[in-house]
């Protein structure tokens, strides 16, 4: 009888433990995402990674977006996390090899809430991010596009609207919905401080331009791209 009760208690404690966001993270996310850090310091290490590092998710993502996206994930990087693993020569130019891309798993509403809460506690940022990095303000999409594309050439690698722009990097028309503004400013200022081997170069653009680019992301994020 005592043994039966012990087994029952063990089962109950194990199942409640399995229900925590932290446990879900370890079970469902850890095989593709680094939850502990540090970021890759060699190409060999980078090439092994299947998705973005999450050990500083709490200073990078917006929790509301994260919770929704985890329930209904859609591709943010047209050519996958590491573009060079998902392309092939095409008729005119290299093209995305869709057969090598896999879909991100979807979580239930309850799982997404727990995982988001667990992710938001992860704040082991390699760079100290000040809350007031982004000074706010607005910019027109037309002028923002000039700063982003014409003055800095960022559109070479990023889509600024669905189906328009570069394919190797993540889309930027949802960037402000997905990520915290202070992180965006800090990452654009020094991408290698966050991820030494990131395919994103440091453009050494001015602080003023960085602010304008993040304002541009906010302007883009206000558009309803699903209806366009």
């Amino acid at each position: 009888m005592r043994a039966t009760i012990s087994l029952l208690l063990l089962f109950l404690s194990a199942s409640s433990w399995a229900d925590t966001g932290e446990q879900l993270l370890q079970q469902r996310c850890a095989s593709c995402h680094d939850l502990q850090g540090p970021a890759a310091s060699t190409l060999e290490d980078l090439w092994q990674r299947k998705g973005p590092d999450l050990f500083y998710a709490g200073v990078k993502y917006r929790p509301q977006w994260l919770r929704q996206w985890l329930q209904k994930p859609r591709r943010i990087r047209p050519a996958g996390y590491l573009y060079f693993q998902h392309i092939k020569p095409g008729e005119k130019h290299d093209v995305i090899d869709a057969s090598t891309l896999s879909e991100h798993m979807a979580l239930s509403a309850d799982e997404a809430r727990k995982v988001t809460e667990a992710l938001m506690t992860r704040k082991a940022a390699p760079v100290q991010v000040k809350g007031d990095e982004f000074g706010g303000g607005s910019i027109s999409i037309t002028f923002g596009e000039m700063v982003f594309d014409k003055f800095n050439g960022c559109m070479a690698c990023h889509e600024i609207e669905p189906g328009y722009g570069g394919l190797s990097g993540p889309e930027v028309y949802t960037a402000a919905k997905r990520m915290q503004s202070a992180y965006l400013v800090s990452f654009i200022r020094d991408p290698q401080a966050w991820n030494p081997k990131t395919p994103m170069p440091n453009k050494h653009t001015s602080e003023l331009n960085i602010q304008k680019i993040v304002r541009y992301f906010h302007a883009l994020a206000k558009e309803n791209w699903d209806e366009k």
Binding site: I87, P89, D94, S168, K197
Partner: peptide, 16 residues
């Protein structure tokens, strides 16, 4: 890792 995205897998300037 860094150049293929624009200069192409074959280096011919025809990247993704």
């Amino acid at each position: 890792t860094y150049c293929w995205q624009c200069h192409g897998m074959q280096g011919n300037g025809m990247g993704v």
